[in-house]
């Protein structure tokens, strides 16, 4: 029992231990070898880090919910891009232009609705056809990306509205808007997963789907809601990011799905469903971003980041397996 508690502590705390390790390492390495003049654990640096992790982070939070269900969503990158295009393009529609700055919230609304709609399509297909979510969203990843290109060909879409940029770069107590949105999403979804009936059902479905069905939980609509949620969050991520930048390329958001999944898995969510936490994913997102910044801080090539993150993902998996071993009596299959 004691051993189990230790294991659980290790499992749940691992990501935070890792973050502390990163902080200490980069701080010490940075100053000892005089690779950098600045301190690493600098407040501004940390605030910037939070802002930079927002786009992937917001999506990763949604991915956590989907993966706790035992599903996966590979189309988030394309949803991200399409929502961004809708937002920027809608600003130049005649009736929107006529509204001036009043069009901004409307543009956001259009983007978020786009995300919800695309998520809704995925959810309905998963529910009604019974095709595995991996395949459905793999198809949607291609299909939605096709829609992105069809919208504006291979050209970038832009629309710069200075009011929108100001809002995106607004600063509350040092937190810029994307960081605030990210933190708010973490808080709300955390409450959803830990306090609400929907959230608790999500764990039950991922853990033991048959038991959940037998207990009368309607799995189909539940999946649908979560796919709409991740669509919404992908669009929200686009809103937070592109309001400031004002320009979107049709290839933007590619591989976001893989980064998001990496963060979720690092945060301790099981691929098979039923286990995982929003806070863990938050940790996973921060850990990845720290690694990116930290390696830059000590002067390592930015290229090594991918190498290190990939290796860490595999090592985490190995450690997890070691922790879950049953010992010598195990059946060898």
């Amino acid at each position: 029992m004691n051993n189990d508690t230790l294991k659980n502590l290790l499992k749940n705390g691992a990501i935070w231990g890792f973050i502390v390790l990163e902080l200490v390492f980069f701080e010490v390495a940075g100053s000892w070898w005089s690779l950098s003049d600045n301190a690493f654990m600098d407040l501004d640096n940390m605030l910037l880090l939070l802002k930079q992790s927002a786009p992937i982070g917001i999506i990763a939070i949604g991915m956590t919910v989907i993966m706790i269900n035992g599903n996966i969503d590979l189309s988030v990158g394309a949803i991200f891009a399409l929502s961004a295009i809708v937002m920027l393009d809608s600003m130049s529609w005649p009736f929107m232009e006529a509204m001036g700055d009043g069009a901004i919230p409307l543009a956001w609304l259009f983007a978020l609705l786009t995300g919800c709609l695309l998520g809704f399509v995925n959810g309905m297909v998963v529910w009604k056809t019974g095709v595995d979510a991996f395949i459905v969203t793999l198809g949607a990843m291609l299909g939605y990306r096709g829609l992105v290109f069809m919208y504006n060909g291979e050209n970038p879409t832009f629309h710069l509205n200075w009011t929108m940029v100001d809002i995106a770069e607004a600063n509350v107590l040092g937190f810029e808007t994307p960081a605030l949105v990210f933190l708010a999403v973490v808080l709300v979804v955390w409450l959803l997963m830990t306090r609400s009936i929907h959230g608790r059902n999500a764990y039950a479905i991922g853990d033991n789907r048959e038991a959940a069905v037998n207990a009368g939980i309607r799995v189909g609509p539940h999946f649908l809601i979560n796919f709409v949620l991740i669509g919404f969050l992908s669009a929200l991520s686009a809103v937070a990011f592109y309001s400031g930048s004002g320009s979107v390329n049709p290839n933007d958001g590619m591989l976001f799905e893989l980064w998001a999944i990496t963060a979720v898995v690092l945060g301790g969510t099981k691929l098979t469903g039923g286990r995982g936490s929003i806070i863990g994913t938050f940790g996973g997102v921060i850990a990845i971003q720290l690694l990116r910044k930290g390696l830059g801080h000590i002067g390592a090539n930015s290229e090594t980041v991918n190498l290190v993150i990939g290796s860490i993902l595999i090592i985490v998996l190995l450690l997890d397996r070691q922790l879950n071993r049953k010992g010598a009596e195990e059946l060898k299959v």
Partner: peptide
Amino acid sequence: SLAQELSVAENIYLG
């Protein structure tokens, strides 16, 4: 037919 990650109470009143 229990969900391992949930509490005893949540399992008993599942659904």
